[in-house]
Amino acid sequence: MIALLLRDLRLATRAGGGFGLGLAFFLILATLVPLGVGPETDRLAPIGPGILWLGALLACLLSLDRIFALDLEDGSLDLLATAPIPLEGVATVKALAHWLTTGLPLTVVAPALSLLFFLPTTALPWLVLSLLIGTPALSWLGTFGAALTVGLKRGSLLLSLLVLPLYIPTLVFGAEVVRRGAEGLPVGTPLAVLAAITLGCFALLPFASAAALRINLR
């Protein structure tokens, strides 16, 4: 399984691997919004948490269709399914690799981008923490969606339609954590709900993704 993780990370960083695509999208979105909305502090600060979380979510969405589709095209997925690793493990590694190449870089650059939105410094730890806790759920839900739509022609459009509604709770509670953090309110409840969503994804989606893969491979 570590071999698979290393291979996926290596593929992501090689030419055409798509590493940095989501990150670049996130950077551009976070730069364009202040340009479009106007540079006033009292207008940008309230929408900052929502925009940053929305940007992270859309950036995650960009690379989802590659998770299984490339392996299906070149036949590796068939071979992985016959390998001595369970498909649940394959799905877990794929989700982890997606998070390491998308969610983690987003979390790292988010504090720098929050300057563009005049977010108070009190909100920064909560921004990083909420992204750190919330983005694994985005990767997991996306992996599940990718497993469902693998092998479908034009599947990436369907994938977005399937996955975006599932992203709503993470978006709501993730942005809420940052908003409350910015206003100095207690953040315990939304943070706990966010963590619960992520833990639920970890518990259920390996099995759901593996089942979806088995159906699509036959």
Binding site: L11, D74, G75, S76, D78, T82
Partner: peptide, 12 residues
């Protein structure tokens, strides 16, 4: 199992 597809990663 060896299938019709080669199952190789072009970038590696």
């Amino acid at each position: 199992y060896v299938a019709h597809a080669d199952g190789l990663k072009g970038q590696l």
